[in-house]
Write a protein that binds this DNA or RNA. Structure first.
Length: 205
DNA sequence: GGTAGGATAAGCT
DNA sequence: GCTTATCCTACCA
């Protein structure tokens, strides 16, 4: 049995970390129940100069405080009045940079995920940042936790992606909408949206 | 197959 | 007041 990814893994440029996270396994333990999924889609939020990031211009608030707490920390925030989103912080202490996890390939605790998500369609278990948080039981209670602790862990890839990732712009944002900072495993059927067709990895929207 | 609209709340201007 | 790193349902093709 290997070890969870150490803080040092996350202490790099957010784009590097985002790409390296593809294929890694995000695991939670909630009241003894383990659920886990293989990361197939991520977005990088690269720092205080990123207009789409919550830490733009180093603005701090109660919500985004965890984003400033250093590499290897979870930043979990609530959005649209009903969804949680999970990020892995990559910036050194005081620098707001993180990777948003957007989709997982379910690998453990599927029955629990189906119950939490109220669906039997496995494709819809973890295909989207809000969905994967619901499936894994991630809430604001996990904001600020270390990513190598008992409740939250990220394991190195058991099976690394073979092909280079599909690169597109980030989803659901309006500022810096054309920055190519979304990375998805090529050919995965577990992403939040279908791969752009045409083979060239072109953008959409 | 696709898309429009609503739910719901924190933070910002 | 307005925006937001979303999801689900309803409706139309």
């Amino acid at each position: 049995m290997g070890a969870a990814l150490p803080a040092g893994f996350f202490a790099r440029d957010a784009v590097r970390v985002a790409r390296a996270l593809l294929g890694c396994v995000l695991e939670t333990r909630v009241r003894g129940v383990v659920t886990a999924g293989r990361i197939v889609e991520v977005e990088a939020y690269v720092g205080p100069h990123d207009p789409a990031a919550h830490g733009f211009r180093n603005r701090r608030s109660a919500r985004n405080a965890s984003m400033f707490r250093g590499p290897g920390i979870a930043y979990v925030y609530f959005i649209y009045g009903m969804h949680w989103c999970f990020n892995a912080v990559t910036g050194r202490e005081g620098v707001p940079a993180a990777v948003l996890v957007r989709a997982l390939e379910p690998v453990a605790g599927l029955a629990t995920m189906r119950r939490r998500r109220h669906t039997d369609d496995d494709r819809l278990l973890c295909a989207g940042p809000g969905r994967l948080c619901q499936a894994l039981g991630i809430t604001g209670a996990m904001d600020g936790l270390r990513l190598d602790g008992p409740r939250l862990r990220i394991w190195p890839p058991a099976r690394a992606p073979v092909r280079s990732p599909v690169v597109t712009s980030r989803i659901g944002i309006t500022r810096a909408a054309d920055w190519p900072l979304r990375f998805a495993e090529a050919g995965s059927r577990w992403t939040s949206r279908p791969e752009p067709q045409g083979g060239s990895g072109r953008d959409r929207k």
